[in-house]
């Protein structure tokens, strides 16, 4: 997994899961990729990392992925966007490893003849990233850390598998996944 996983699924889609050593996302690379003389619009979405969560200061975020499956899912998502809207080109990149607060963790660009299609396709891709692409983010606080959970994933899972209560014996879904040094929480969590 030393090198970037790059797939050009349908030759007009650029999909990159960026390894930790890659540094900040080169946004221009993806915008330029979707630039097309036939396009009247390029829509982009940049997801950036926040500095606070429920009042806790976020020190950094760490991303990991099931890289081969994430790459496949992203290719499928781009194909779905292409099937739903007349887009010209789509590019999506997601960083792995430590991402500093305020930096871009994910970037999507889509071009189309008209802006509505470009914006719809761009939104579809980022919404699907949140719901179905196997990438995980751990938020690191000054006094603990937690694996985040996307609401979009949980909602879709519930629709597919049924309510969580159907699977018995499970412990409370929160609480235990949060690891915080007790002595330093000051009642914040």
């Amino acid at each position: 997994m030393a090198e970037e996983e790059t797939v050009e699924a349908e030759e007009k889609d650029l999909i990159e899961i960026l390894e930790p050593s890659s540094g900040p996302i080169d946004l221009t690379r993806y915008v330029d990729y979707v630039r097309d003389p036939a396009a009247g619009a390029i829509a982009t979405f940049e997801g950036t990392t926040r500095d606070t969560f429920e009042g806790k200061r976020v020190v950094e975020l760490r991303y990991e992925a099931y890289v081969p499956m994430a790459t496949r899912r992203l290719a499928a998502v781009c194909a779905e966007a292409r099937a739903a809207w007349p887009v010209l080109r789509v590019a999506v990149a997601h960083r792995l490893g430590t991402v500093g607060v305020g930096e871009a963790s994910v970037f999507v660009a889509a071009s189309a003849v008209h802006r509505a299609e470009a914006m719809e396709a761009c939104r579809y891709v980022i919404d699907e990233v949140k719901a179905s692409v196997p990438i995980w983010k751990k938020e690191v606080y000054e006094n603990g850390e937690v694996w985040k959970e996307n609401r979009e994933f949980l909602e879709r899972r519930e629709a597919a598998v049924g309510p969580a209560q159907e699977r018995k014996k499970a412990a409370c879904c929160c609480g235990s996944k949060v690891r915080v040094d007790e002595e330093s929480t000051g009642g914040m969590i």
């Binding site: 994910v106 990233v129 949140k130 719901a131 179905s132 983010k137 959970e149």
Partner: peptide
């Protein structure tokens, strides 16, 4: 077979 805990990309 992969165990996929709640994802949190983006």
């Amino acid at each position: 077979l992969a165990i996929i805990p709640p994802i949190s990309g983006g």
